[in-house]
Design a protein around this nucleic acid. Structure first.
Lengths: 187, 187
DNA sequence: GTAACTTTTTAACATATGTAAAAGGAATTG
DNA sequence: CAATTCCTTTTACATATGTTAAAAAGTTAC
């Protein structure tokens, strides 16, 4: 349960007051494999933390599914623009395995940011990781071909390979399943 | 000169103390068209602000140039992972026009973040904009074809179209110049 | 205003990736 | 353990985009 708190402190140490506050505010929910955690079109009102399991941000375009990111155990996630700008999210989040999620309400997040410098620091550092992860993925899509992107994926997400289907991997790389299968068979 | 400060406040209002501090710390430098503002391989030690002009983040891969982002007047920019993690940047920044830049040293940035809650809030909001801009670009690259990406570019950067060359636009879209020329001629 | 240079367009051909359909394997359920 | 379902591979063909080279158009400099 307080893995959430522990990982907040991993990113940036927060005050005792913040810790107590968090302990009161954090809620937990479990999801079965395949269950939606957050749905496209709805405003994302939580900072999520994966206690155990695996989830993906995904979106359908012209009948194909694309995956923005995977989040494994001990990672925080939000639908970034939705969360910060109170907009309908443009992707959904689904559990790829049975998953336990801890979460903090947006209102509590904002209140803690405003009242506690140490939590604002955590928030800044968390968001900066979101930013450069996105930039790193963007770079791959911009100038690497499918094979090189797959190699990058193996380097960065290799430890998750057995838990992520070929289809989801292809969706993350922005290529078709068939194309990824071809790439894999060439090795 | 204090456009920098004015735009900090646009993003998130800072205390008088922070304002005074910033006024003392902000420096200015001018760059001619084509001049490098920040070079790949060096650690990015500044938060930059474009007072006037236009710049791009770019990178060469297999002989072709790719563009991560453009920054126009009144925008802040950094080489995100380099700035926050003290790593060599993996792209350069160049002035596409004669450009006036205001900048804040990393040390001052971190000090202001640590000492002043209001500046940390600014930092968090600034970085969250970096994050969702990157995510938005990433989404385009992930599931849109070249034509649709070009249309997205026109919507989002249309006001800059006359100031950005075909080659730079193609580099931003992740396609060849020839390909973009074809797309444009089909309209 | 001509020359030199840069940017954009066009053409021809090469290649990577997509699509559709079917077959083969693996996993799950009764 | 048989049946169903899901996931992955293979094949054949279609298409988008890349590459190279050359021509055309636009800019800059003397």
């Amino acid at each position: 349960m307080n893995e959430f708190l522990r990982h907040v402190n991993n990113i940036s140490t927060v005050s005792n007051e913040v810790s107590e506050n968090l302990q009161r505010c954090i809620k937990t929910k479990t999801y079965e494999k395949g269950e939606l955690i957050h749905t496209i079109g709805h405003v994302c009102r939580h900072l999520f933390f994966v206690e155990s399991g695996l989830v993906k941000h995904f979106y359908y375009h012209k009948g194909s599914q694309f995956v923005f990111r995977f989040f494994e155990e001990k990672q925080f996630f939000i639908a970034t623009d939705s969360f910060f700008n109170n907009l309908p999210a443009d992707y959904s989040t689904v559990a790829l395995e049975d998953t336990i999620i801890h979460y903090l309400q947006y209102e509590d997040f904002e209140r803690l940011c405003n009242q506690h410098h140490s939590f604002e620091s955590f928030a800044r550092k968390f968001v900066s990781v979101v930013a450069y992860t996105a930039i790193s993925n963007l770079k791959g899509l911009l100038y690497l071909d499918a094979t090189a992107r797959y190699e990058k994926f193996l380097k960065e997400y290799g430890h998750l390979q057995q838990r992520i289907s070929l289809g989801d991997t292809a969706g993350f790389l922005g290529i078709s399943q068939v194309s990824l299968s071809r790439i894999r068979s060439k090795k």
